[in-house]
Design a protein around this nucleic acid. Structure first.
Lengths: 197, 197
DNA sequence: ACTTTTTCTTGACAACTGTCAAGAAGCGGC
DNA sequence: GCCGCTTCTTGACAGTTGTCAAGAAAAAGT
């Protein structure tokens, strides 16, 4: 029905974009609505014109972001013609997204953790987490196909393990910067082959 | 020098214990000093008599807790006589600690994530994370020995992957309760063998 | 018993929070 | 130019936060 986004929709996206900057830099708890509005072209009151409350803004923002990003590895999947090529491309992409979007990833882990304390976040987080699992599974499944061997673990386990490595790398990157990213690539080269028979 | 804990030390532990309850239930950001003191035999002002600020109290508390808990799997390591036995005991212990200490684990992941936004937390978190990695490595290394095969990944990768699975299970347990814990045990039975050649 | 020191409570502070209402500003149609 | 509607700003509200100082209470020392 709604083919073009309404003027209201575009404002919401604009606000969401500003919110993501602030949220990514300060985290969920420390990012106040005034601070968020301060990094936007608007004043602090406008938030409640477009969103019911802070939670709705945050959920909208992170949904907005993740929608763009669940396709991050699709090119890796479709362009690779051998298992080795896929591993390299995947490892490179992982390191790249930490380098270029660390604040967004920090925000994501922050929100996912907060959802354990704040039920209002739970549904949205669970849904997004599912799309991330599917995203990772497309990579693993494709790797299995290229290698001609069946996966050795299910989608949840594959996601859990790779997400654990990613989170560890993000944490180390936050404290130690660039150098640690090589370690992540090395780990991925070792781990992906373990995920197929 | 100090063989017995001073009276002051015991008060600090007492406060830390109360703080852990509140922090575990509400998370780092939402647990105010008044709330923490409210769940203790003292009033809210006493915190600044024993701790310089909130951060110091929180770090002291989580250090206090983790010191007790890094030995959690040591019995598993020393009592197992076959790889299969170790896997079962380890999987059972993982599920048990989620069941019995979920709030503490939520708090830990909360603090670890906050450390990416708050440099004041970083040193303590990094140090504790190292002891957890060592704890997990003792399990994996022992499994490798019992299986008569060398580990296929290093300590950081082993910790990253297993921690990822654990965190995923904790998240699912928080939303879905008891039933999901069987899944964790199943995953561990599949994954541990992948960590040795 | 009196003094000194340690321990703890109370009440206040300035700053900050999410929320909302009143009205200004902008903008369409007429 | 005027009206009505949408959009946005301003300023206020009630509540909360970490922090700290003043002094009460308790304990220790003499």
């Amino acid at each position: 029905m709604v083919l073009v986004p309404t003027k209201s929709d575009r404002r919401r996206e604009e606000l969401a974009e500003s919110a993501l900057t602030t949220l990514g830099a300060m985290g969920y708890a420390r990012a106040s609505l005034r601070e968020i509005a301060g990094n936007s072209p608007f004043s602090h009151g406008v938030v409640h014109y477009y969103f019911q409350d802070k939670t709705e803004l945050v959920i909208y923002s992170v949904r907005h972001y993740k929608r763009r990003c669940v396709t991050r590895y699709d090119a890796v999947v479709s362009d690779s013609t051998s298992p080795e090529e896929l591993v390299e491309a995947f490892a490179a992409k992982l390191a790249q997204t930490i380098r270029e979007e660390a604040p967004m990833h920090r925000l994501w882990y922050d929100l996912r953790t907060q959802s354990m304390f704040e039920p209002a976040l739970r549904d949205a987080i669970t849904e997004i987490d599912g799309t991330l699992e599917a995203m990772i599974w497309r990579v693993v499944d494709r790797y299995a196909t290229l290698a001609g061997r069946p996966p050795s673990v299910g989608a949840p386990a594959a996601y859990g393990m790779l997400d654990g490595l990613f989170q560890q790398a993000l944490l180390a990157y936050t404290a130690g910067g660039e150098p640690v990213l090589d370690g992540l690539a090395t780990q991925v080269r070792v781990v992906l082959p373990l995920l197929v028979r």
